[in-house]
Write a protein that binds this DNA or RNA. Structure first.
Length: 223
DNA sequence: TGCCAGGCCGGGT
DNA sequence: ACCCGGCATGGC
């Protein structure tokens, strides 16, 4: 993947707080829509936690509209910001201080932050090693038969962490960040190509509700 | 035109 | 402990 795309230098944001906001806004949503909402936020409150928290609910919801689920996300964003401001003096460094698993639990305790959102914040907005699993990861791993269909988030996370454990510790943060980015990139390509494929051809499009695969394609098409 | 997108929560068995 | 509906906009 690195040979094809080069180092991707994720996450696409210009500051840690922007990573956190994007992580919430991109829940079940295409990044394109999130960018518009982030642009609105920048224009309205320059992405400052205290300023954002000062916006009332309808005002914030209006700014988040392009990201979809704007009522849900307004509440989730505010619950995150309120913890950040009231419990950690609006300082991300303080929020992220401490052992990874302890910080992760604190994040998971915030309304609207689940495992993927928490891990995205940990990995990309701070220096914590917490591997991010997402829908693309699961589709790709399923298609390669690297995991069973019932595999949970934490199952997949364990598989990834074990598989990448050979990397030197000093390079691990950089490697994990790029590895997830590469999976997203490859996952998007699967969707874009929409090619008919069989189970022997791992790069066949893999959509959640795609019909059952044919047993064999005769070895014709590959990607 | 309908299906899909980098989840998560809450109420029901 | 699962299972499922709800949430909403923009792209293809």
């Amino acid at each position: 993947m690195r040979a094809t795309h080069g180092h991707l230098h994720w996450w696409p944001a210009s500051s840690p707080i922007e990573v956190c906001l994007g992580a919430i806004l991109t829940q079940n949503t295409s990044w394109n829509n999130v960018e518009r909402a982030i642009a609105n936020l920048k224009h309205a409150a320059s992405i400052d936690p205290r300023q954002l928290l000062r916006l009332d609910q309808p005002k914030l919801a209006a700014l988040l509209k392009p990201a979809g689920y704007f009522n849900v996300k307004t509440r989730r964003l505010r619950s995150f910001l309120s913890v950040l401001v009231n419990e950690f003096d609006a300082d991300l460094e303080r929020l992220f201080a401490g052992p990874t698993q302890q910080v992760r639990k604190r994040l998971l305790g915030i309304h609207g932050i689940g495992p993927e959102t928490a891990d995205s914040m940990l990995l990309y907005a701070s220096g914590h090693l917490s591997f991010v699993i997402d829908a693309y990861t699961k589709r790709i791993f399923l298609r390669h038969a690297w995991c069973p269909a019932e595999a949970t988030y934490s199952d997949l996370q364990s598989v990834c962490v074990r598989s990448l454990s050979h990397t030197p510790r000093s390079a691990r943060l950089d490697y994990w960040r790029d590895y997830h980015a590469q999976l997203v990139m490859v996952g998007k390509e699967y969707c874009r190509k929409r090619q008919p494929r069989c189970e022997r051809c791992p790069l066949r499009t893999l959509l959640p509700r795609s019909p059952a695969l044919p047993r064999d394609c005769g070895g014709g098409v590959r990607s």
